[in-house]
């Protein structure tokens, strides 16, 4: 590749440990972020941001595994705790103190459910990191695509919003770009689920009148948004599918907050 910016070397914990180094923060990629095609792009974008601001970070690479979240929500507490204990061993082995996740489900599980099993870390979601970087003046909105005046709406992921009361950080990241931030009729604590939570991502929905993501996409269309911002790989899939199904891909883009940040900074 000719573009030097794309030749980012992603540091792993194993390499860092071999060099006797400890990163400031672990980037927990998550299963969707590792395997889902669209989410992988967001994962790389989060790394671009980390590189750009010069934070010392690392990922677990092939050592990472599922946090156990979908198993837990589906009622398989055994499998969840197996995954959790193995993950805690791994994280503690690398003496990890601070984690940024690319997924609200991983965020919620590590932050809220691991402490009871002995895993205590400072956990933030990538939108919170972006907000911090903006507040610290490390991230500017320059050198890239302008979002000024663009009609952007933000879809609250359940496990970030209602689950953990993170409503402002993602919005702050969008407002920073001088966008025209518009709210859907169901937003913040009243936000409507995309339909993928509680392990629904991995099964067919029960019989009903329609799919939940279609109900949500109707809100997006009603808000007349040009961009719907997401902050969760599952929401990303559900919204993208819904918009495609409504044949609105030309009018409405679905972008993660990290992608928007990368675009705005030309990273």
């Amino acid at each position: 590749m000719e573009n030097p910016k794309s030749e980012i070397k992603i540091p792993t914990m194993a390499e860092m440990a071999a060099e006797g180094k400890e990163p400031e923060i672990l980037f927990w990629v998550g299963c969707a972020g590792s395997f889902d095609e669209r989410a992988r792009k967001i994962t790389r974008d989060i790394c671009k941001i980390l590189h750009h601001v010069g934070i010392s970070y690392a990922v677990l690479g092939t050592e990472e595994g599922c946090t156990g979240d979908p198993a837990k929500r589906a009622g398989n507490e055994f499998l969840f705790q197996m995954q959790a204990m193995m993950t805690i061993q791994l994280l503690d082995g690398y003496n990890i103190k601070k984690i940024v996740t690319g997924c609200p489900h991983c965020f919620n599980t590590i932050k809220n459910e691991y402490p009871g099993l002995g895993g205590n870390y400072e956990v933030i979601h990538h939108t919170q990191l972006i907000q911090q970087l903006i507040n610290d003046g490390k991230l500017k909105a320059e050198g890239g695509e302008s979002f000024k005046g663009k009609r952007i709406t933000y879809h609250d992921p359940c496990y970030l919003g209602r689950g953990n009361n993170v409503y402002e950080a993602p919005r702050a990241a969008l407002e920073f770009l001088d966008t025209e931030l518009i709210e859907m009729k169901r937003c913040k604590s009243n936000g409507l689920c995309c339909g993928a939570g509680g392990a629904q991502m991995f099964k067919e929905p029960e019989p009903g009148k329609k799919d939940i993501n279609m109900e949500r996409v109707a809100d997006v269309i009603e808000a007349k948004a040009q961009v719907v911002a997401a902050a969760c790989p599952f929401c990303m899939t559900m919204l993208t599918d819904g918009i495609k199904h409504q044949d609105k891909q030309q009018e409405i883009q679905v972008l993660d907050i990290a992608e928007i940040t990368v675009k705005a900074n030309g990273l």
Partner: peptide
């Protein structure tokens, strides 16, 4: 099995 655990009900 239809629940998405979204917490809209508890909210």
């Amino acid at each position: 099995w239809a629940c998405t655990t979204c917490n809209a009900c508890t909210e």
